[in-house]
Design a protein around this nucleic acid. Structure first.
Lengths: 357, 357
DNA sequence: GGGCTCTATTAAAACGTTTTAGTTAAGAAC
DNA sequence: GTTCTTAACTAAAACGTTTTAATAGAGCCC
């Protein structure tokens, strides 16, 4: 590997000024197409631009932000990147943010609180202009809020709803999702349906269950308590598969017949499918399975998973757009009330559900 | 949403100085535990620290880096984040970098060259101290090199080997991987083996194939050209599944019997499994399938995929460690030759392979 | 010839740190 | 009584920009 060059200094605005014979001010104005540039004659402009090009000038963004207090950088803090749930969201964010000519910098906390806090601190220290938090896990909001509110920086959180905070949120309508899922199974003709509910600590769990009960009530369907199991509370974002295996085993152990399983999410559903298949129960011939989320692997399975889709990419889009608009509107915009945006889930029928035999 | 406060100004070092009654210099020295701090008496120190705490002082990292030319930030540029191949690598990077108390900021190019370049430019403009590029796709290296070399910043690339550049690289030993894969199938007793090779433009394809032929030669196994298909060149990182479906269909269409498929990677392998299953050919009973990579979904399938594992997390670790050490050693270290680190792949036997019937 | 308004350009301050090169006082060494 | 060392602190320069306020000439109007 070569050494850093002797001449390590990056070329600066001043260098361009020197070469072109104009002052740094003029150069800055020209290169940024600042309002004042309208008075600068064509000739000067090209002259300066050529000088810049010749020197290979790239502005030092640190200095720029320090002075102008704008850096066009948004921080994205994800609680665990290895969760397949994040990826499409990030894609949505990246797209929108890119269009708006911002840069989204990601930091991954890997499910650790201390990392989360340190990353947050650094992002704030870098003076990002806005913050998007992807809360794909149980989130004790206290610390987050303290820090963020102090800095008073536009923030939106995806996947959770925060009370008592000046923070927007974007999340799926879990209740509607639960409703849709059961509706689908019911419409196929299933009546003996098993449920794997999410961890109690996760707000989503309750919401989805509420939707389920709401549909059940609407069609006068009895939910058999012996066909309901809960996922354990402690679980890292990727333990869902194992948990699904365990939960399905538990269901089989109870020896109460069922023709369909509604799983808390796709990972759980995949775990179920494994357990069922290993036990010789064919999916979907002998038992239907429906998931929730529509993460990438869901469509790769055989059978491909029927699921309730969260519009993840759109959620990323919306979150990013919220921030960008907010930033564009500037500090004087008073209309931005704390909002929580609920996105509609969507039933995606694939191969893992079918009318009961 | 609340307005930005009137009092928007963040508290600065100067504020702390004012409150504590010392100069900014002293405050800076104390708060950073700079060498000179050894002369500062305990009393002063605590006094200053209390003042800082009371004001809720958080240093402006922009100003800090601008002055000191160190920001403890590494840029990570990924060509497409939605490729499941990236996630474990990022995890490895994040871990190592975190230990070294750096921050890894990610930027996702979403398979677009223009984005890649813009992100690169911004990261360099932010004066990141080092750069890690995850090249999970076909990479025309020219532009990248031009920019990076000019800035002369420690860089390592994961997944590709670059010639003629002062850039380290970390990648799996593809040849060994190809060797291992065929060895496994052969050891199980398979002789009529189909191959789905990678896109021609991808260097990995050739390497893996070389390993395959090398093993075949060593045991005197004939490779039947009628059982070899190539994936098309144009493919985005996630088209592998579709391509696998098509490739397997092509193999079936040729009506040459085979008892096993060696797929270019896991995505392709999953596509094959789908095609075979749909065609009524049970995996692994009637046909074995082996993949390459060991991405997350591989272990979720039924049957779980036997594959050649790339040690992705370790690759991330190694790449990050390379940069960190390099940075630690400083500009004076002359020993850092351009290195390309080859990691050993590993056979992971799961359920999709079995001796032929 | 005074007062406008444009045009073209710039000097200098500011952003919030870190770091260099001191300063001062006190004691020790010679 | 001079010089050295060490402790405790600081003034001011620097980092590379953007921005504010100013300058100065030119043309025009009365």
């Amino acid at each position: 590997m070569r050494m850093r060059k002797q001449n390590d200094r990056n070329t600066t605005l001043r260098d361009v000024a020197r070469l072109s014979g104009f002052s740094s001010a003029t150069v800055s104005i020209v290169l940024n197409q600042a309002p004042l540039a309208r008075y600068i004659p064509e000739q000067t402009r090209t002259h300066i631009e050529q000088a810049a090009k010749k020197l290979g000038y790239h502005p030092n963004l640190l200095a720029r932000s320090l002075r102008s207090k704008r850096n066009h950088v948004l921080g994205v803090l994800v609680f665990d990147l290895s969760d397949p749930f994040c990826t499409p969201i990030l894609k949505g964010i990246e797209n929108t943010v890119y269009q708006a000519s911002y840069l989204a910098v990601l930091a991954d906390a890997q499910s650790e609180w201390t990392r989360f806090e340190r990353h947050l601190e650094i992002l704030l220290g870098q003076r990002v202009e806005g913050l998007i938090v992807i809360a794909n896990w149980i989130l004790a909001d206290i610390n987050l809020l303290a820090d963020v509110e102090k800095h008073d920086i536009p923030t939106v959180i995806i996947g959770r709803e925060l009370q008592r905070a000046s923070i927007h949120s974007v999340l799926v309508d879990n209740e509607a999702g639960g409703f849709l899922a059961l509706q689908h199974l019911h419409a196929l003709g299933h009546r003996k349906i098993a449920f794997i509910r999410g961890p109690k600590l996760l707000p989503d769990s309750g919401r989805r269950w509420k939707g389920v009960r709401s549909f059940a009530r609407s069609v006068n369907l009895q939910i058999d308590a012996r066909l309901v199991v809960d996922l354990p509370d402690l679980r890292t974002p990727n333990s869902g598969f194992e948990a699904g295996i365990k939960a399905a085993e538990e269901l089989l152990r109870r020896r109460h017949p069922f023709t369909a399983i509604m799983a808390f999410d796709d990972m759980t559903a995949m775990g179920c499918i494994r357990t069922l298949t290993v036990a010789g129960i064919k999916v979907p011939e002998k038992c239907s399975v429906i998931g929730f989320d529509d993460v990438a692997p869901a469509s790769l399975m055989v059978p491909a998973l029927t699921t309730i889709r969260q519009p993840m990419e759109a959620m990323g889009d919306v979150a990013a757009a919220l921030i960008v608009d907010w930033l564009r509107a500037g500090p004087e915009s008073s209309d931005s009330e704390v909002k929580s945006r609920k996105m509609s889930p969507e039933l995606v029928v694939r191969e893992s559900t079918r009318p009961p035999a």
